[in-house]
Design a protein around this nucleic acid. Structure first.
Lengths: 249, 249
DNA sequence: GCAAAAGTGTTTCATGTACACCCATGT
DNA sequence: ACATGGGTGTACATGAAACACTTTTGC
């Protein structure tokens, strides 16, 4: 392979895997891409929301810009995941369509992927539909544009691991939630069932999931208490555990 | 802020934090940057090894290329860390010097950072010196070029976390090592001391640190056995634990 | 009364932590 | 003999896993 030292035909893009939870199942925000599709292109009906990076913006701002457009909010949870840099990840007809869309003449695009987590509600579902996007059940995702299926799979693995270390679940839940909702969410992310009794104990012994005064209503079983996540207590816990772990290993 | 949609003056670079361990202390590979320094530039005497990305190479190949140049080997441990994308991370005189060096006309550079781990020996120390680089003790690192101090600090935190999850320590140790060497390395990375007796038990109970027949010689205390890391056994262990964790939480 | 999920308690076992003590070597 | 680190063993606390049992609701 001959090394090509031309630096000015490359662009950086971002692609964002936005997860949402509606109390039942884990969903991902996908954008319909009729503009892109054409004969000879591998681009399917859906892609992840994303954008090229403008010259004077940093990645976090660019993600906020895309989120504003697609879900109408800026202040949501987002974290960098990975960089996909295979020079052949977009080429041929796909590359031509992208260049046409952005009025550019690029030879390759490196993409930085992000993960976002949002508390899903009906308003957001209709906002997405009005803006060319759709919340699709994780288990029903079909062929996506470009290498976006790869990115989605990596993102799912990523949050499954992260879930065991950081309190990301609460980014996906409403302020008040039942232990059952939390468990259903965790099960949806990790892909297998948990013992509800041990799960409850583990969660409550964490010290930062706090009961409220409210109960479920109109359920055909014993109504569950609603709980909330106390971020300040969480941060105190983290500090306390860190100190303990300093003593010895 | 006005969004500037010019996409062709951006470049992607990589910067690599290469850690090495010589049995005593943790070191990082730094490159002397006399070419870059000038009045008005924030670029100091040292920077992390790195490069712009050529049009037809992916990031992993580019890292391998840089490693070949700086330490004379391609097949070493390397993993992507983070992307630094602040448009102002390189500007003014710094940017001018970079453009001059690469004969380019860029307005901003986004950098993808990598972490590499190598088994350090005397040959490598002299190879580095011959090639404009130097292995510097982690505790003695001064002001680096651009935002490279930030990158180094993030990398250190990153491996300290990673150490508790993955067997990265063995990438930094020779094939045969004493438990003490392993502990000294871990202490250097996490920054505090560990109980030697419990550490030994934890390591040996892992199942994949295996005693050899050899002992230390010429030490003024009971000579320690040399051990080795068995990667195959490690992978079996991982699978076994994964199965266990599937049962319940 | 029955189904369904909430919520409590108990037993068992594995792992982490602290620390006492003996062993082999060079000086 | 003694200093130094290697190596073994033990006691205690903490937490995970499995599972029995009671409680509260709608039907």
């Amino acid at each position: 392979m001959q090394t090509n030292y031309q630096y000015d035909k490359q662009a950086i893009s971002l692609d964002c895997v936005v997860f949402g939870f509606d109390g039942q199942s884990l969903k991902v925000l996908l954008v319909r891409c009729k503009h892109f599709s054409s004969e000879g292109s591998s681009i399917g009906n859906y892609k992840l929301p994303g954008s090229l990076i403008a010259n004077n913006e940093d990645l976090d701002s660019a993600v906020a810009r895309v989120m504003e457009k697609r879900i109408g909010m800026r202040n949501i949870y987002m974290r960098q995941m990975d960089v996909f840099s295979d020079p052949k990840r977009i080429q041929g007809e796909d590359l031509r369509l992208v260049n046409k869309h952005y009025n550019a003449d690029l030879t390759r695009i490196i993409t930085v992927t992000y993960i976002s987590l949002v508390k899903l509600n009906n308003q957001m579902v209709s906002f997405a539909l009005k803006n060319g996007a759709e919340w699709i059940d994780i288990d029903s995702v079909k062929r996506l544009a470009l290498d976006h299926n790869n990115i989605l799979i990596k993102a799912l693995n990523h949050i499954a691991r992260q879930l065991q270390q950081e309190p990301i679940a609460f980014e996906l839940l409403p302020k008040k939630f039942t232990i059952r909702a939390l468990r259903t969410l965790c099960e949806a992310i990790i892909g297998f069932e948990l013992d509800s009794r041990n799960f409850r104990k583990k969660v409550l012994s964490s010290g930062y999931v706090i009961p409220t005064e409210e109960k479920e209503v109109d359920v055909s079983h014993k109504p569950a208490l609603y709980y909330k996540f106390d971020k300040k207590l969480y941060e105190q816990e983290i500090k306390r555990r860190f100190k303990l772990s300093l003593r010895s290993w």
